[in-house]
């Protein structure tokens, strides 16, 4: 009897462990007082009102979205073109090229950021949201490429051949056949790229200066210790990421099965 309950007890304990920090974060974002620790007195929306009225934070939020959507767009376009080129054309050395495109995945973000920081400062260029976005494309391009490349199968190739036999140009084939057929993979790559980029910290921290992204702004708020404002902003960031993941799950992965 006890042995049969054991798996469920383990499952329960695991879920408590997994949800303890997020649960605490969200609960105390509704704290009335100015310290996000027990006892809980609330609920109150005071801190949400506070952060939404903070220009630094809303500005940083906007910057984050800008960087995330910009970096994701570039990653998906470059990743798609490379996947199309390598999957549809017989090229010598294509294994090496695939390896090169995937390589940034094996290096930690800190090192990617450090390398770019050295080159940018040595070249005498300034740091900005653009340099942060360039760094984010470096880490998201391999993922976009891998996802799209993996979903290019024989099925699409037959449809592409048929379109070509009917006289479509290469641009028409890509626009009217390949892209629509690969839409689930392209959307998955785009939204995954957005979620990874929009709350990325270390590259954004190293490669921005005056205009910063939200995680960098949160980082500087952290220096003054525990605060319900941080809980509120953290809960909002979590909510956005989870929404994107759930939309992805419902729209893309459900349909594929």
């Amino acid at each position: 009897m006890i042995l049969r309950m054991l798996p469920w007890a383990y499952l329960l304990a695991a879920f408590v462990f997994i949800y303890l920090p997020v649960g605490t974060l969200v609960l105390f974002s509704f704290q009335e007082g100015s310290l996000p620790v027990p006892p809980f007195n609330g609920p109150s929306l005071r801190w949400y009102g506070d952060i939404l009225g903070d220009d630094d934070l809303t500005g940083a939020l906007l910057n984050s979205l800008l960087v995330a959507f910009g970096a994701a767009s570039v990653s998906v376009v470059l990743g798609f073109l490379a996947a199309y080129g390598l999957a549809r054309h017989v090229l010598p050395g294509s294994a090496v090229m695939r390896g090169l495109l995937i390589a940034p995945l094996t290096v930690s973000y800190l090192i990617v950021g450090l390398g770019l920081l050295i080159v940018i400062t040595r070249a005498g260029l300034g740091l900005s949201l653009v340099t942060a976005a360039i760094g984010h494309v470096v880490i998201n391009l391999p993922i976009a490429f891998a996802i799209i490349y993996a979903s290019m199968g024989a099925q699409q190739q037959n449809a592409e051949r048929a379109a070509r036999d009917l006289g479509a140009s290469e641009a028409q084939v890509i626009r009217l056949v390949t892209v629509p057929m690969l839409m689930p993979a392209i959307a998955a790559a785009f939204f995954l790229s957005v979620t990874l980029s929009w709350d990325e910290f270390i590259i954004a921290f190293l490669l921005t200066r005056f205009d910063v992204t939200l995680p960098v702004e949160i980082w500087s708020m952290l220096r003054s210790g525990l605060s319900p404002r941080l809980n509120a902003i953290g809960s909002l960031v979590f909510l956005v990421s989870v929404s994107v993941v759930l939309i992805l799950e419902l729209l893309v992965f459900r349909r594929r099965r």
């Binding site: 080129g85 090229m97 040595r122």
Partner: peptide, 26 residues
Amino acid sequence: RIRGWGFAAPALLWTVAFFVVPFLVM
């Protein structure tokens, strides 16, 4: 082959310019 490389070139150039070169400089 030239056409295939043309498609792969932008991504490859990006990776070389912003990943390989910084890595070598580091």
